[in-house]
């Protein structure tokens, strides 16, 4: 299982690092699209599927999914008390996040094809 049990410290670091990266990338992307809008499909697609943006978005997805995993896991560790319920919920959320990750990656790969 890719998203296995992190220790407290490792999870915290991943969440913080991911947050910092996402913040920087989001500010950059927002600034870029404000300064240079891409109102047509062709321009939009070209920008997103460019090498630099693809790499940035790919990393953003990784950061987002791991950040979400740590956060949602924290919620479950706090409130989901019966062990069975907690484990099942963690498994479900892990699978949901993986699916979203694969889906988003597919969109990116397909656009660059």
């Amino acid at each position: 299982m890719v998203k296995c049990e992190f220790t407290g410290l490792a999870a915290w670091v991943v969440q913080r690092a991911g947050a910092a990266y996402m913040l920087c990338f989001a500010i950059f992307a927002l600034a870029a699209i404000t300064v240079h809008p891409r109102p047509s499909y062709a321009e939009w697609k070209a920008w997103v599927s460019s090498d630099a943006m693809s790499a940035g978005i790919g990393l953003f997805l990784l950061a987002l999914l791991t950040h979400m995993w740590v956060g949602l896991r924290d919620v479950l560790l706090d409130y989901a008390k019966p062990e069975g319920v907690q484990r099942a919920s963690l498994l479900l959320i892990g699978m949901a996040l993986l699916s979203v990750g694969v889906w988003a990656l597919q969109i990116l790969v397909h656009a660059r094809a």
């Binding site: 407290g8 410290l9 915290w12 924290d74 560790l77």
Partner: peptide, 12 residues
């Protein structure tokens, strides 16, 4: 002793 997910890292 404090590195696990519960001991210290429940702190928000």
């Amino acid at each position: 002793n404090l590195r696990g997910p519960y001991r210290l890292f429940r702190c928000r």
